[in-house]
Design a protein around this nucleic acid. Structure first.
Lengths: 108, 108
DNA sequence: ACTTACCGTAAGTCATGACTTACGATAATG
DNA sequence: CATTATCGTAAGTCATGACTTACGGTAAGT
């Protein structure tokens, strides 16, 4: 249950952009920072936050450091959402089944 | 594509707690604020943020205001996550299929 | 009509965190 | 061995946003 960090991590636009950039596969830090409007140290700090949230993993390769997406964080988020999704369906179903003569019409 | 707001909204612990509290069905503001360590106006502000993110919807009932979970926000988040999930799988598969004779060994 | 209940908004305070520049550490290169 | 490349960390600045109290506005109750 570390979706606290996961949500907090993905709340920042720069961090989401970094994360999306890793979709194509592992990348070194300088490579990630290349297409971004912020400095390389800033990217490093963001990567640390993403790593702490279990969203990315790093691997030292020579003097470089390859970062890649870690599925564990994604799975955690998905589990949280799915739980909510099921509950929402349940609530909706309950409301629909109720006759509700005096209810105000809810659009779609 | 408003997952910007959705992630930012769920990044706050108080807001997640409010959101989780609505799993059981619609609730008035005072009722939500009852079990929380923050003031009622604070809860109102949080609800506004959640509403702007498409995560909750409100309905005026007399002098009260019932807030309930809006699936649209959840669907948006899920779509974003699923897209990532598919890409991660794709990248993994590609890497495995590559012979990689001159590659430096990647542990598992 | 007056009072009470329930809620949103305004204004102001204060902590968090997203940046920057500067520096040090390690590995490849010649 | 000296140099260069790549990166993480430290320290400091500055904006954002999460709270509070105070207030006004509408609907229900008597």
């Amino acid at each position: 249950m570390t979706y606290d960090n996961a949500f907090a991590a993905l709340a920042d636009p720069s961090r989401r952009r970094i994360f999306e950039r890793l979709r194509g596969g592992p990348l070194p830090v300088a490579r990630i920072a290349a297409g971004m409007p912020i400095s390389r140290p800033a990217v490093s700090q963001h990567l640390q936050v993403l790593k702490a949230a279990g969203l990315v993993s790093d691997e030292a390769v020579g003097t470089r450091r390859l970062y890649s997406i870690d599925q564990r964080g994604l799975d955690t988020l998905r589990a949280w959402l799915d739980q909510f999704w099921a509950d929402a369906l349940q609530a909706f179903k309950t409301e629909v089944e109720r006759p509700s003569r005096t209810r105000k019409g809810k659009r779609t």
